[in-house]
Nucleic acid binder design. Structure first.
Lengths: 202, 202
DNA sequence: GTCTATATTCAGATAGAC
DNA sequence: GTCTATCTGAATATAGAC
């Protein structure tokens, strides 16, 4: 990962910005260097290759996701008492404000590589697709077991939830952005499928 | 578009297969030629450039989508009498069996270019994202006006619907396929948000 | 650590014989 | 229309002076 300040971080940030805007394949090492204000060859004092910069971006995305992902154990406890919709809301990863811009771009870069790099595909799959899936199913099952919600096809619900997060994440910062309010209302509409039996806790 | 048989179609099919599997940027004209069984230079007797092949694939996808897209007028009529869930089901484009394999690959190729080619992004946006949106909203509004369904946030529903179709389409033929049955059940689960007032027509 | 200069590789595309 | 041979250009990466 990148340290604080210095040329290496400048390279990282130039790269993440350029890759997010113009795609990895269309950005040359020379362009990155020009943005930083150095010669292309100097890049190689900090990164072994262009690909190494990309891997660093993947790593930034993956590390922060792992760090910020809610703990399933905590959520499972929440499932016993909290409002079922709140439990589902809590499965969403929330980035600290400070890293939002870089995370958004790192995610976009990783997502843009899914069709040409299996490593990126695995990262996106694991973090954006499989994750909501793996969280929702045990949570919903537990709440059904506790008779806190009406019976529901947890698997289909989880698929819908993960597709929604995935599509939105990929589109959020593309040319055709998604309106955040509409997105949240959509999510609430989906949560409406989870019908609470015992209304919100005390 | 491609005619029937002949070298040009062989090039088209080799390209669509290779691009779908390995990504446009990683497939060389030489590879396509080798697959067809000719020399790279012979490609240029049929296509002006590598990009021209790609544009032909875009066109194949777009033309067939336009051709198979249900007619909104017909759906609006359906909305007066048919079961509301059937109306929503009818918004989905169904490919004729004969073109399923090629369409699937053409769609995948187009989708894989969205992050590096604005033309592809527009095609995917128009056909996979905006389309369900543009269909659902007037249909739902009409059915609400006719008091056939309970009031509903049509915009959020449409966004959810379009995200689901988009994410699924892109993932269906990727490394991590989606189970078709689960997908359909997810769609039905979403349709369950549309609560029918007057039960299915006579 | 940065620079200049250059090596290397490879892909898209063209010329012209057959 | 297909071939062989070649051009052209671009991009990654390296060598070595400072």
């Amino acid at each position: 990962m990148q340290e604080l300040g210095g040329t290496k971080q400048a390279i990282f940030e130039a790269a993440v910005n350029l890759f997010a805007r113009d795609n990895y394949h269309h950005v040359s090492v020379r362009q990155i260097a020009k943005t930083v204000g150095i010669m292309a060859s100097s890049i190689y004092n900090h990164y072994a290759s262009k690909e190494a910069i990309l891997l660093d971006i993947y790593d930034y995305f993956d590390t922060n996701m792992a760090r910020l992902m809610p703990d399933l154990g905590t959520l499972m406890q929440m499932a016993e008492t909290a409002h079922p919709h709140d439990v589902l809301r809590a499965t969403t990863v929330v980035y600290p404000q400070a890293i939002v811009p870089t995370m958004a771009k790192a995610m976009l870069v990783t997502a843009s590589m899914t069709s040409s790099d299996p490593r990126a595909e695995d990262l996106i799959h694991r973090n954006l697709i499989e994750m909501p899936y793996l969280y929702d199913i045990p949570l919903l099952n537990k709440m059904m077991d506790l008779d806190r919600i009406e019976p529901l096809d947890a698997e289909s619900f989880a698929l819908m939830h993960s597709c929604y997060c995935h599509s939105a994440a990929v589109r959020f910062y593309g040319s055709h952005g998604i309106d955040t309010d509409t997105w949240i209302r959509g999510m609430e509409l989906l949560f409406g499928r989870v019908v609470v039996k015992q209304p919100a806790h005390a």
